[in-house]
Design a protein around this nucleic acid. Structure first.
Length: 348
DNA sequence: AGCCTTTGACCAGCG
DNA sequence: TCGCTGGTCAAAGGC
C-alpha cells in the first residue's frame, strides 16, 4: 500500500481546479437547510405545544447534557446514563411517559437510565438481529452503549434525521424497565460502521481529538443523497460515536449484504421502508418549520478544549448542521491530550 | 467490472 | 496572519 501512498500527494493534485463539490459556501449546501431552520428548542416546543417552553427547554437541555455526561452535567444530578438510539431526544420527546403534562420531566436520570438500558437490552441493534432500523445506528455502537451503560455517556444528539426514528419500536421498548435485563453486550466490532439499510462509502478517515479516536467519514452511496456520517472509533475499534448529517432523499435500498441474514427485505425492512416514506414527508415540513438541532459539539463532547464550554452555549449553540449524533463509550477521559497519532485503527 | 477502502494532501473555518 | 483542526478529495489498490 505504501506504493500508492508514496506518489499520492502533490502529484495527484494539479494546481488549482476548484473542487466542484467543495466550492460551496461554508457549511456546505448539504446542510443549508440546517442553517435556516430554527434551533432545537424551537422544534422541541413545537412538538410539545402544551409544554411551557421555558421549563421544557430547561429540562430538555438538562437531559441532553446529563446524558452527554459533559462537564456541564457533572454538576447536575448524577447522570451516568446512556441514551440508546431509541432514546434520542426526539424519541424522548415522542415519549409522553417522560414528560409531565406541564412539560417537565418527571423522570429522574436514574429512571431514565433504567429505561434506556432496558431499551438497549431489547434493542434490535445487535449483531444477532440487526433488523433494519430507521435510524442507522450501528450494532457496535449499541454494544458500546450497553457495555458502558453504567458509567458512560452515550450521546444521542439529534437534529434532522430524527424523524426517521422508529419511535414506535422505541416506545414499545420503553415499557420495559428492567435495566439489568439481557445485556448481551456483544463486543463484536465490524468494519462497517453500521448496517442501517443504507449503503455507505467511506471517503475519508482522520485522527481527531488528539488522535485518540480515528474518525471515519461516510457518504450515502445513493446518487444525490447528501447524507453523510462520521464514525468515531475507540482505540479498540469499537464505535463510540456516530454522527449523521442530512437526510436521505431516497428510500432504503434493498439489502445487498447478506452478512446478517439479509439479502431480502424482511418485514422490518418493509415496514421501515414505509415508515421512511411517511417520515420523510414529515421531515419535509419539519425542515421548514423547525429543525431539531439539539446537537452541537459543546453538548456532545464533554471537553474542556472544545469551543464553547458554557451552558449558555450548550443551550444556544446551533452552528452544527443536520446531525444525529450517537455516542457511546466512556467519554470522561477524552480530549485530554494534544494530538498524538495512535496505532492505526485496528482492522477487525 | 464495479464498488469500496485506504490514505496523504488540500482546503476552509476558527482562534 | 498563522497555525490548528476538521472535512473532503481522489488515486491506487483490494475485494
Amino acid at each position: 500500500m505504501a506504493a500508492h501512498e508514496a506518489g499520492d500527494g502533490a502529484a495527484r493534485r494539479p494546481p488549482a481546479p476548484p473542487r466542484p463539490t467543495l466550492s460551496l459556501p461554508p457549511r456546505s449546501a448539504d446542510f443549508a437547510a440546517a442553517e435556516t431552520s430554527p434551533g432545537p428548542l424551537t422544534l422541541a416546543a413545537s412538538l410539545f405545544p402544551d409544554a411551557p417552553s421555558p421549563s421544557f427547554q430547561g429540562s430538555f437541555t438538562q437531559l441532553l447534557v446529563g446524558a452527554m455526561g459533559s462537564p456541564a452535567a457533572a454538576s447536575a444530578p448524577p447522570s451516568p446514563f446512556a441514551l440508546p438510539p431509541c432514546l434520542s431526544p426526539t424519541a424522548l420527546l415522542g415519549s409522553p411517559a417522560l414528560f409531565s403534562p406541564t412539560g417537565n420531566f418527571e423522570m429522574s436520570h436514574q429512571q431514565a437510565l433504567a429505561q434506556v438500558t432496558a431499551q438497549a437490552a431489547h434493542s434490535p441493534y445487535s449483531m444477532v438481529n440487526q433488523a433494519d432500523y430507521s435510524l442507522p445506528y450501528s450494532s457496535t455502537t449499541t454494544s458500546a452503549l450497553a457495555s458502558h451503560h453504567v458509567n458512560s455517556s452515550a450521546n444521542v444528539t439529534a437534529t434532522q434525521e430524527i424523524p426517521t426514528l422508529s419511535s414506535h419500536t422505541c416506545n414499545n421498548n420503553i415499557e420495559s424497565t428492567e435495566a439489568s435485563q439481557g445485556f448481551q453486550t456483544s463486543a463484536i466490532t465490524v468494519d462497517k460502521p453500521s448496517d442501517d439499510g443504507y449503503n455507505w462509502r467511506k471517503y475519508g478517515q482522520k485522527a481527531v481529538k488528539g488522535g485518540e479516536y480515528p474518525r471515519s467519514y461516510y457518504k450515502c452511496t445513493h446518487s444525490n443523497c447528501p447524507v453523510k456520517k462520521k464514525v468515531e472509533r475507540s482505540s479498540d475499534g469499537q464505535i463510540i460515536q456516530i454522527i449523521y448529517r442530512g437526510q436521505h432523499n431516497h428510500g432504503r435500498p434493498p439489502k445487498r449484504r447478506s452478512k446478517d441474514g439479509g439479502g431480502t427485505l424482511n418485514e422490518a425492512d418493509v415496514s421501515h421502508e414505509k415508515e421512511d416514506a411517511s417520515t420523510r414527508s414529515e421531515q419535509g415540513s419539519q425542515d421548514h418549520s423547525g429543525k431539531f438541532q439539539a446537537s452541537n459539539d459543546g453538548i456532545s463532547v464533554p471537553s474542556a478544549s472544545r469551543r464553547g464550554d458554557g451552558d449558555e452555549k450548550l443551550l444556544a449553540s446551533s452552528d452544527s448542521e443536520d446531525e444525529v449524533k450517537v455516542e457511546g463509550g466512556d467519554a470522561s477521559d477524552r480530549n485530554t491530550n494534544k494530538r498524538h497519532v495512535p496505532a492505526p485503527a485496528q482492522r477487525i
